[in-house]
Design a protein around this nucleic acid. Structure first.
Lengths: 245, 245
DNA sequence: TACATTCATATGTATGAACAAAAATAATGG
DNA sequence: CCATTATTTTTGTTCATACATATGAATGTA
């Protein structure tokens, strides 16, 4: 069975020892190839610990996505190497919700503008063609922390009369059958100009995190061109990535 | 106290109900501003559930970083700033090479420093333990555009006498059998202080893109803690991500 | 054979209890 | 008044136990 042991005399909590032990098991090719772990009752007995303590460890690893448990079946090591586990793609509303942040909408401006060179190039449409522009100032109840400017490809059919208090990608999916699939982003730091400083209640020159986002549908057709200007003091962009092996 | 209730007759598991309930509490400005949650024993009693069940919920939220529990003190809502998670992994050298940029090394400082609270916490080592610190100023031939500060876990065995002109992750892999596997990053914008302004040849107050990078090995053990300060006018962080379906 | 039923197995949910350990607070002594 | 020592508070760890529920395999039946 399993040759690993744990030390009841150690100051290291049992569930931490078990967690470390399981991390080794996870690297074992046998388990990596889909072999089931011993069932909880047996494994706990074998390690000389209670099932609850064992589950403290597997809970954590399950949450981290390293183990997959299935009721009535068993527990296996998640096989991440096979190109799975692409991290989630979330809309702003979803992101905020996941963080437990209530969104307040401060401003909404809808207008039609002529495509400039960059937009014409990205959307692959003629110069000066009319494009829907959406400006939104959003943030926490205490104050706005992000100013968005979005442009949408005419193809998606937005009229400007939609209810933009709803999550944008839901509107696109449900009303316009447009699915956002791929996103390319560019993140940079800039100094606030007068316009942004006023919007975000900053002083001109204060640092701002700028996020440019290009959104494509499953057919790689451009959907949205989006600019986000975030107050530096309330926004951190986090990225988690694994190396391909 | 708390006006929320849970339903013992529901098919929704109690700990899930409690979890949802706590997610609402997390939005409550009062708790967001640092008010402690009721202690576990009282809260469980008030909700009519066992302390274990309550902890099932708080465990999850703690893993997610929404709650912070402290032994002997209490539980508070984490006042985290906003984020997103995505994919992609390259070393600095690789990144630059991919962009066709020749790297120039301007400065290299190697020193041993005491672990402060953050380092001790990340590396899971005692406070004041000696760790290797690497400071590097790098950029284009025309001038530096990034200042790096790296700290390495004692476990990897770096002596400080290595040839750091070579790609770092190659040194780690080939000489020290340490493989960087997972990277968590936090990107933010800051204003240059005097020190950074001098290094990067900027004026104090100029915007800087700050990248904090946590690097782990395949066993999720911490390897490196890295800070990068990039001139805003010459660095854009790009991310590409797909949505899961 | 095809379908439904039963049964064994594994994880999921929930409770109660006890003690450990860290931190804050109160009590004590100089 | 300050420093040290107890005490209290709060989360952390661990166990034993019971039943629920999903799954898959074995079994029975038309």
């Amino acid at each position: 069975m399993l040759k690993y042991k744990i030390d009841h005399k150690s100051v290291v909590p049992l569930h931490v020892q078990v967690e470390n032990l399981l991390r080794e098991i996870i690297n074992d090719p046998e388990y990596r190839n889909g072999k089931f772990l011993p069932n909880e009752v047996d494994l706990a007995k074998h390690l000389g610990i209670s099932r609850n303590t064992l589950r403290q460890a597997t809970n954590k690893l399950t949450y981290e996505g390293l183990l997959i448990r299935k009721k009535g079946v068993g527990t296996v090591v998640a096989n991440k190497s096979v190109g799975t586990r692409l991290k989630n793609w979330l809309s702003f509303s979803q992101e905020m919700k996941a963080l437990g942040i209530t969104i307040t909408n401060y401003e909404l401006n809808i207008s039609w503008v002529d495509a400039d060179k960059e937009l014409s190039n990205f959307f692959r449409i003629p110069l000066n063609k009319q494009i829907l522009k959406l400006e939104r100032l959003r943030g926490r109840p205490e104050g706005p922390f992000v100013f968005f400017i979005s442009y949408f490809h005419p193809r998606v059919g937005l009229t400007g009369n939609e209810d933009f208090s709803q999550p944008l990608y839901e509107i696109l999916e449900k009303k316009y059958a447009t699915v956002a699939h791929l996103s390319k982003e560019e993140i940079s730091a800039i100094a606030a100009d007068d316009f942004l400083a006023t919007k975000l209640r900053l002083k001109p020159g204060d640092p701002i995190l700028k996020r440019k986002r290009f959104v494509f549908d499953p057919g790689s057709r451009p959907i949205e061109y989006n600019l986000g200007f975030y107050r530096a003091d309330s926004f951190v962009y986090t990225v988690e990535s694994e190396r391909e092996t």
